[in-house]
Write a protein that binds this DNA or RNA. Structure first.
Length: 572
RNA sequence: UGGGCCGUCGACUAAUGGUAGGUCAAGUGCCUUUGGAGCACUUUGUCUAGGUUCGAAUCCUAGCGGCCCAGCCA
């Protein structure tokens, strides 16, 4: 999380184009509410994470929706931490969540905590008890479960359901006073044990938990459940449209029940589909498992779908926002192809990232007819998509590195790059022709000897002859050595949860999700690259300076590779 | 087997009783000092069966399929 600032500083996304405002059913409802004056023209939303883990790309969808919709209609959004379970929540998570929301580019109006409302929630509970709408139940968790019935059978009423208001008031007060041990009693709403909706079968409102809360300390030993806290928190903040994911649809009647019985501001809950991505897991529990079992280096491992991981990987907030704006909001649950996300990352980086030449798997090239000891400064374009990015000088000399993939002693069909007798262009340099190779004991080519045509300086032949391929290079004498971390999908299956009986999702972990190359060669302009800075390594992909970089020992993360039609053709 | 929600190109989504369109992916061509980017073009779709209607992806009925719910988690 500490690197949040560094990466933010390196963001190059100032002038955002007019964001797309695609229509969706939630937006339509808001427009309708505006028309009918339901909330007097007000639109106020909230983003309500529980501070029990790091935000991931699924949350990014919710954030963009909550903030985006409110913003579009002139309203605002509160950030509210849903901290009703002291056993899982920590301040560390609160801080990371705030940093992630800001990084995504959003500003909240109010900053609240459900724990701010503990007193009010308690007073409302007393009110419901007095109205005979809530009661203290002495049944154990196990017994409550048994009484709840099943999906097809109605539940049975608890023997404690008919307690008098006075007794309930007394017992609830003593629960609050700490007279009873954890789990010994709960406060329940008195609704309908026969309801086909299990959430309405006298849901638990309060449980006893003698636990230290990250904000209220030991002030409370009874804590409200999500269902009892969420709607009322929305109501207290005058939230008009409370968006959440589909699995809460069954909770809406209960959400409305509390608001109705209490006669408070009628916030409305609306549900949309959760984001699913191929090759990706978006479950806090499973992501935590990856961290705990050290399958990844941490929550911010660049292979993680967490916002901190994605940020470190080099994704831009702009790309994420564009992605979310284009995937739609519906009630169908599907799975998006990861390629869709990558498209928006490439699209954004293509227009913003400075181009640079870097060789990830170096192969030495010696230009036999180039003067020894001579160095030239070649002009290179910083960003062909953005003329204002200007140009830079790149040193050229007799010994260079090129990509191992860019030379084949025996070229396959359709291979345009360097091979014996073939001429190619060194980008911004000269045309060269391969003459001979040097091999090691194993027969691997370790060095290619070439000749160059001095008349082609800059990359154009005066006689107009064409060359089929342009390859990148780095002058050996001027190269900066770097570590490059090449990432692939964390899971090798589209659906990481698709495993044989008896195995868990870790069976689908991709053993090649990280390849570390330690002798990448970079052009010298990269010498002062700061952590978080993003570049396009020409012909290879987008790379971002990792926070593990040390002075003189830079580390680059490959954010996403460039599209590679040659590789695609070859794999067929 | 109760309740809730949902089925549109390979994926995601639009069409709100009136021309099934867009994005991604895939493919073809053009262009190219990144086999990048760009440009042009192309392929494939309304789960099924009935019904209402001049007209149905849209409304109704039934079937089929998928997701969610039996925490003192959120």
């Amino acid at each position: 999380m500490t690197e949040a600032n560094a990466s933010t500083k390196a963001d190059s996304t100032p002038a955002a184009p007019e964001p797309a405002r695609p229509s969706n059913f939630i937006r339509d409802t808001i427009i309708e509410d505006l028309k009918t004056g339901k909330y007097n023209g007000r639109v106020w939303t909230r983003f309500p994470p529980e501070p029990n883990g790091y935000l991931h790309i699924g949350h990014a969808k919710a954030i963009c929706l909550d903030f985006g919709l409110a913003d579009e209609f002139g309203g605002g959004t509160n950030l509210r931490f849903d901290d009703t379970n002291p056993e899982k929540e920590e301040t560390e998570y609160v801080e990371s969540i705030m940093a992630d929301v800001k990084w995504l580019g959003f500003e909240w109006e109010g900053l609240y905590y459900a724990s701010d409302y503990f007193q009010q929630l308690h007073d409302w509970a007393v009110q419901l008890i007095k109205a005979d709408k809530a009661y203290v139940d002495d049944l154990s968790a196990e017994e409550i479960r048994k009484h709840r019935g099943t999906l097809t059978e109605p539940g049975k009423e608890s023997p404690f359901r008919s307690r008098t208001v006075e007794e309930n008031l007394d017992l609830f007060a003593r629960m609050k006073a700490g007279e009873f041990p954890d789990g010994s009693r709960v406060l329940r709403a008195k609704i309908d044990m026969a309801s086909p909706n299990l959430n309405m079968r006298d849901p638990v409102m309060y449980r006893i938990l003698h636990a230290e809360h990250h904000r209220t300390g030991d002030k409370w030993c009874i804590y409200p459940m999500y269902d009892y806290a969420h709607g009322q928190s929305d109501s207290l903040e005058n939230i008009t449209h409370s968006m959440c994911t589909l699995e809460f649809e069954d909770h809406r009647p209960l959400y409305n029940w509390f608001i109705q019985e209490l006669g408070i501001f009628p916030s409305q809950q609306m549900e949309f589909d959760r984001l699913n991505l191929t090759y990706t897991l978006l479950s806090k529990r499973k992501l935590l498992q990856l961290v705990q079992e050290k399958r990844v280096s941490g929550w911010d491992d660049p292979r993680m779908p967490t916002l901190s991981g994605i940020r470190r990987r080099g994704y831009t907030p702009e790309a994420l926002r564009n992605f979310v704006a284009n995937i739609g909001v519906t009630k169908t649950n599907g799975t998006l192809e990861l390629a869709m996300l990558e498209h928006f990352v490439r699209e954004d980086l293509n227009r913003s990232a400075q181009r640079v030449m870097a060789v990830v798997r170096p192969l030495k090239v010696v230009i036999d007819n180039y003067p020894e000891g001579q160095t030239e400064e070649m002009d290179a374009v910083n960003n062909p998509e953005d003329e204002s990015a200007g140009k830079r000088k790149v040193p050229f000399s007799r010994e260079l590195y090129i990509e191992q993939d860019d030379f084949r002693e025996i070229p396959p069909k359709g291979y345009f790059r360097l091979s014996p007798g073939k001429e190619v262009r060194l980008r911004y340099g000269y045309f060269i022709t391969a003459q001979s190779v040097v091999k090691n004991d194993k027969g691997d080519v370790t060095e290619v000897h070439v000749t160059y045509d001095p008349a082609t300086r800059g990359g154009n032949a005066p006689d107009g002859r064409k060359v089929k391929s342009t390859i990148h290079w780095v002058s050996a004498a001027h190269a900066i050595n770097a570590e490059a971390r090449l990432y692939d999908n964390l899971f090798s299956k589209e659906d990481p949860n698709d495993v044989p009986e008896g195995q868990d999702f870790t069976a689908n972990l991709n053993p090649n999700s990280l390849e570390t190359v330690t002798d990448a060669k970079l052009e010298p302009s990269l010498k002062s690259a700061l952590p978080g800075a993003r570049y396009q390594f020409e012909r290879l992909g987008y790379f971002c300076v990792d926070t593990d970089s040390k002075p003189g020992a830079p580390v680059f993360n490959r954010t996403v590779a460039l599209k590679d039609t040659w590789a695609k053709k070859q794999s067929k």
